[in-house]
Design a protein around this nucleic acid. Structure first.
Lengths: 214, 214
DNA sequence: CCCAAAAGTGAGTACTTACTCATAAATATA
DNA sequence: TATATTTATGAGTAAGTACTCACTTTTGGG
């Protein structure tokens, strides 16, 4: 059995809305433009979404659920489990690569919900509860575990998580918005540098610390 | 001699616009609301700014100039010079505290221009040229200098700069938007942790490296 | 092929928006 | 005080805007 026509139309409209919202922002986007992008009459939109705001909320809901349940934490957990016993360097690389793919793939979605979260407290609360908190908890487990094992210092795991995230997001945004003259051409090389900073710092250990590599 | 009345009115309108823009975003903000906030008639706005967009551009221009010339780089340079010979820890702390104060003070301005940069390529170009590039160049000097002195590793200075910035911005945004349950109550303590991560990494040096503190 | 239900349409509506302009008020000049 | 200039006003306007609804088209089962 083929999918119901109404489902297809609804999805087409949602996709068009995501495109226009992420290009112009929610407020500057118009329903007529979304209709044009979707290839339907303007009235059709309102058969599926009672208000313009409903479009935004459904996009937010969908994106957050997507991240929360199916993709984000299942692959994240997998990556974490796969590399549980491996070196921190290997674990972090797998982790970051996994996150980069997600970011890249869902960039329009992410742009919309993170921007609109500013103005809609309910969206903000959803992101906080279903993405940030969960993600942080998972990461904190990793840090706590390796701290107990003596591999990591006893640094506040939330600060460590947020710092790593900050470095990655900064890289990603630079790649997206000002890719011109700041980057090494190789993404993996750059990630390696970030991991090295995160694990070992930028201070020259030769001067004050004798490194014993395995 | 007192200031011309027209200058005062113009500034009042600009301030009102900054408030409304940063609260609702440029598109969702209305000229009638800005007029109300400024305590003037709607028509008055258009005696000083021919279009609504002119408001945005003047705000952007003003903010970028402010950052570029007067406040940002003069104090940044001062901080750098003052701490030139001191320990990296001291330098970075002075640097971050200085940036935090700026961020805090001009948060509404920053919000507006960084958000609208997405949609206005000219604003994006201005930010890139007058803030990001200049700031990065200054920071890179610091890193290059200390790398040559053997204090820092030979890590790509742009990546190092961006990583440090990413960690700070991540902290700042968390402080602004989700201050509830992630933070140690003490900001300075948190900055110390970030600097420690940045300089020494989170890996436990005791296991593979013998630290020699001064 | 028929017809009822489902899906789609787009002109129309009530409202808001950025922006104008003739007029009024405030201020400066003499 | 009288007059010229600058500054401020807010009703008015044309151009959207989100959203409605009477109507048409499409779909699928008997």
């Amino acid at each position: 059995m083929t999918r119901k026509k109404s489902d297809i139309t609804q999805e087409t409209i949602l996709k068009a809305a995501i495109k226009i919202f992420s290009e112009k922002g929610y407020s500057a986007a118009t329903t007529s433009e979304i209709a044009k992008e979707a290839g339907v009459a303007e009235g059709t939109i309102f058969r599926y979404f009672s208000k313009k705001k409903d479009l935004l909320y459904q996009i937010a809901q969908k994106t957050i659920d997507l991240f929360s349940h199916h993709i984000a934490f299942s692959t994240l957990k997998e990556v974490l489990k796969e590399n549980e016993t491996k070196d921190a360097k290997v674990l972090l690389k797998a982790l970051i690569m996994d996150r980069m793919i997600l970011f890249e793939q869902y960039f329009p979605y992410i742009k919309i919900i993170f921007y609109e979260a500013q103005f809609h407290e309910d969206i903000q609360a959803m992101i906080d509860k279903k993405i940030i908190k969960k993600g942080f908890l998972l990461m904190q487990d990793v840090f706590t575990q390796r701290t107990l094992a003596g591999e990591f210092k006893a640094i506040a795991p939330n600060v460590a998580t947020r710092s790593l995230l900050g470095m990655i997001v900064a890289m990603f945004l630079q790649k997206k918005f000002i890719p011109s003259h700041y980057f090494t051409n190789d993404l993996e090389e750059e990630i390696d540098i970030i991991i090295d900073i995160f694990l070992n710092g930028i201070r020259n250990t030769a001067s004050g610390c004798i490194s014993v590599d395995s």
